[in-house]
Design a protein around this nucleic acid. Structure first.
Lengths: 340, 340
DNA sequence: TTTCAACACTCAAACGTTTGCGCAAAATAC
DNA sequence: GTATTTTGCGCAAACGTTTGAGTGTTGAAA
């Protein structure tokens, strides 16, 4: 058990000063050829690596970015992390992951914890509770201290920072237009309550397309789930009571609950009813029938977010502030839950 | 944009020395009542928080643990992270997540990166490539430096450290015994090649139970998948060619490919053929029919791993070294892919 | 021989903390 | 009034780096 080599030890061992060692290892011209070689050889032999913490303190940057997400046991978020990680690692950054579990308090705690020197900046998707409370002081505080923040997916206008989102309205429009094009007339919508921004936006897309195509909007065909834990039975009720020839669901789970309900009603997917989901996860790919979905490209979002953040971090302070919002395109992935 | 308060600034502002500020904030009896109150009030007002990096350097501990996993877009690993995070946060630790993408080189890189002061210890599940190469020098090097490591799931005997695993043999035995109890006679096995330790162990469990029950072992009923990318067609072939009344698959995906193949063959699950999987993920729960599986309790494994690690970290150095292996129990979760 | 630049190296400060020790002034004891 | 203790605070070192300024030695130019 050898406790990690430091510059000081090398210096003592080789009978030179600490700064000589440091400079030799960084190929400074101040150090003579011979000494430099000797020091480098020694360092290599004993596998010297500079201490990151000391470097962080000196340079006032940690080369670490924090990512705070509502939950990790969730396909979309894992793909985002994956994207962040890839770009971050390429650029020599580490990634600290924290979970808010959709709790406002834990989000605040995590942010405070990491803001005290542990990370250079944040990538964050807001907790549901935070969006309900509309309390963003913890975020503004962090940005006020000069730490860059990139928001993704769950985003609010009140916070001035870089953002990475998808065009939820457009994504929904693509999906519903597709259903109309395939001949569907009565398209049901399974969405969430409006304070969840994505639910609201996707609902708007649904409504817009119907209007653009002069299809009458029937409020009875719109279901807004309040209680996530009870979504399965709510959806079953909805399907049982209404006659639809297509369903657009704002996420994977709602989509497969809809399919279950439709099948239990004695109808077939996609022959009798087409179903489209949102967010392309494991479930969509493997389910039988596999789901036609609007893909959300989490990995790309993560990569974009990381790029935005690192850009800010490595920019000279002279350059003026400006905030960008990157919109990642959605695609409709055609599979077997919609008729051809 | 105010750039973060330090002890030095408080000291200057209040016209006392840095050490006085530090001591006052830590309620040292050396500091007079009045000064202490004044300093505390000031610190509170301007929301002083000690700099973590400086503390890390001073205390030679970071209160951060690193977790390196083969991939994150994978239900089991996310549940593990979730478990680690929970315990770590409770104990005041942060979690750095790194992905090896099953690559030996990236595992080494990540480990080196984090070992230079960024973390106090590691929780790790080995990359597939590492297990093939059987090269563990990067791990032994880290443990030699006195950094605790906890291995989970993919584990090897060669490395001396704490471990968290499930009893794969027993889990498999439970599953196969269950099938036998329900009257299955010809039980197929869909496993992986033997260098993946879990595949080997689960296969052993399958074989043991059959022997214990005096059921003849038919090698034709055992499929070992070589190429993961081609698993679906391999499984389809296997099901088409063999007559089985039950299938035990060593993971979720294999299980649902088996179900697909069975259904395409014109048979019904579970009426004609029962299927049991391993690892309880999203897919198992939502698939139709939902899957009977051996649950792996990732969250519990993560929590155990975190506890083991933090235990080591906070133990006095005098106490002697000893390594524990925690075996997390598996349960059979009965759902709809097996007959009642 | 003196002067001065070039060379090769060391010193010391800084990043933000914590903490043992020293020291002055005030409070107490004699 | 002096001697001693107590109180309240500051100094400086340490954690492991980097880096500008300083220093001593050499060799060559004047």
């Amino acid at each position: 058990m050898k406790p990690k080599l430091t510059l000081k030890q090398i210096a003592r061992e080789l009978d030179v000063s600490i700064s000589t060692v440091s400079k030799a290892l960084r190929d400074s011209s101040e150090i003579g050829e011979e000494t430099r070689k000797k020091i480098k050889a020694f360092a290599k032999l004993y596998n010297y690596r500079p201490n990151n913490i000391a470097l962080s303190l000196k340079n006032r940057k940690t080369k670490t970015i924090g990512i705070i997400i509502p939950e990790i046991v969730h396909y979309f978020f894992t793909t985002v992390i994956s994207g962040v990680e890839q770009v971050a690692n390429e650029m020599g950054y580490n990634v600290i992951v924290c979970l808010s579990n959709n709790s406002f308090d834990k989000e605040v705690l995590n942010l405070e914890m990491l803001a005290n020197g542990s990370t250079d900046g944040f990538i964050l998707s807001m907790a549901k509770e935070t969006m309900q409370k509309e309390d963003y002081h913890h975020l503004t505080e962090v940005t006020n201290q000069g730490m860059p923040v990139v928001l993704f997916d769950r985003v609010v206008d009140e916070i001035h920072c870089d953002k990475v989102i998808i065009d939820d309205v457009l994504g929904a429009k693509k999906a519903v237009q597709y259903l109309l094009d395939k001949g569907s007339k009565k398209i049901g919508l399974v969405s969430t309550v409006d304070y969840v921004s994505v639910g609201k936006l996707r609902t708007r897309g649904y409504l817009e397309v119907l209007r653009e195509n002069n299809v009458e909007i029937d409020d009875k065909l719109i279901l807004k789930i309040e209680d996530m834990d009870n979504s399965e039975t709510e959806i079953k009720d909805f399907i049982d009571k209404n006659e639809v020839d297509a369903v657009f669901a704002v996420n994977e789970h709602f989509a497969i609950y809809a399919i279950k309900a439709i099948q239990e009603k004695g109808l077939k997917v996609p022959e009798d009813v087409s179903v489209i989901g949102f967010t392309d996860g494991e479930l969509s790919k493997r389910f039988i029938p596999s789901l036609t979905t609007v893909s959300q490209h989490g990995e790309r979002m993560g990569a974009e977010a990381a790029r935005l953040l690192i850009d800010k971090l490595e920019r000279k302070p002279e350059e003026e502030e400006s905030y960008r919002t990157v919109i990642v395109e959605t695609n409709l992935i055609e599979r077997n839950s919609t008729k051809l």
